[in-house]
């Protein structure tokens, strides 16, 4: 296998990881600050993709579509937080799982009711379509490079937000001591709504960005949701840095596993059996990774508390 192909696959893994980060960042932030397990995060991703598709269809502008996606997901997130989620903070994880599972059902079928049963169309903008040639002669789609850049940019922005701004200080204080921050006169419920909307907006952005190269359809959020959970658990729940590391680990493991495991098995098996066994193992790879990480470090790579 050539070096170019390997380099290209590493880029693919990186891109997949960065997209997972956008989902995982919101999820881990919400858990870190409010202690909430939000299964409905995938629904916000789906809402982002659907609104992006509709607005892109109306206006023809991808940028407006992205803005609409973030706004719609943030609005849906804030609404859900005000109506349902805020009643769940003092309940245990089990109740949170059930309630947000119920929200998935409502969001999915609601979306199908509004938009119909068929997938929607969302395409990448002309300016970003097609491949570019990278140093070393790698032909790589420009849009995917933009995805990597956007994701890393968001990671940087989130890092700055949390370490350098007033809101960031409040968020960190909220993670450490909830009573204290309320005592200091911070409007805790407003902070929670804000954090939830921020996480939702990130999920909506991911949905819109990914929707352009995938299928915008009902149920698109659940597979990503599971992966995002894998990511934050590997990284350590509540840690943005952990989410970034976890996302890139998962992205690389999944992509490279899918490519190299069948090749590996071909060394000592006949090709079609090797393809089959290797592919099966590849589909289990990230879960094996997660189990190994947790057995080794029960609170994830960067996790402080259980």
């Amino acid at each position: 296998m050539s070096h170019i192909l390997i380099a290209e696959q590493v880029l693919n893994g990186l891109q997949f990881g960065v997209m997972l980060f956008l989902m995982a960042a919101g999820l881990t932030l919400i858990f870190g600050v409010m202690g909430l397990i939000n299964l409905a995060h995938g629904s916000l991703y789906m809402i982002g993709a659907f609104f992006a598709a509709v607005v892109a269809g109306w206006t023809g502008s991808f940028l407006l579509a992205l803005i609409a996606a973030m706004a719609a997901a943030a609005a849906a997130g804030a609404l859900v937080e005000l109506v349902v989620i805020r009643r769940l903070y003092d309940k245990d994880h089990l109740d949170q799982v059930l309630a947000t599972f119920a929200l998935i059902l409502i969001f999915s079928e609601g979306t199908r009711w509004v938009f119909g049963s068929f997938p929607l169309f969302l395409d990448i903008p002309d300016a970003l379509s097609g491949p570019v040639t990278l140093p070393g002669g790698i032909q790589y789609p420009l849009y995917r490079l933009v995805l990597i850049g956007t994701g890393l940019g968001v990671a940087l922005g989130l890092g700055l937000l949390i370490t350098r701004t007033r809101i960031g200080i409040q968020i960190r204080a909220g993670e450490n001591d909830r009573e204290m921050i309320a005592a200091l006169g911070v409007d805790i419920s407003r902070l929670y709504t804000l954090v939830f909307a921020l996480g939702a907006a990130l999920a909506g952005l991911a949905g819109a960005l990914v929707g352009a190269i995938q299928s915008v359809q009902v149920g698109m959020g659940e597979p990503v949701l599971i992966l995002a959970f894998v990511v934050i658990v590997i990284g350590g729940i509540g840690s943005i840095r952990g989410a970034l590391v976890g996302a890139i680990l998962v992205g690389l493991t999944d992509t490279l596993g899918g490519v190299f495991l069948p090749e590996l098995f071909k060394l000592f098996m006949e090709p079609s059996a090797a393809t089959s066994v290797g592919s099966s193992l590849a589909s289990m790879a990230i879960y094996i990774l997660m189990a190994v990480v947790l057995i080794w470090r029960p609170t994830g790579l960067f996790g402080a508390r259980a």
């Binding site: 299928s215 899918g258 069948p262 393809t275």
Partner: peptide, 15 residues
């Protein structure tokens, strides 16, 4: 190649 059921990203296969 056999891909994962429900897979949504095919960058690796296309490469």
């Amino acid at each position: 190649i056999y891909t994962k059921l429900g897979q949504t990203d095919y960058a690796a296969e296309i490469a």
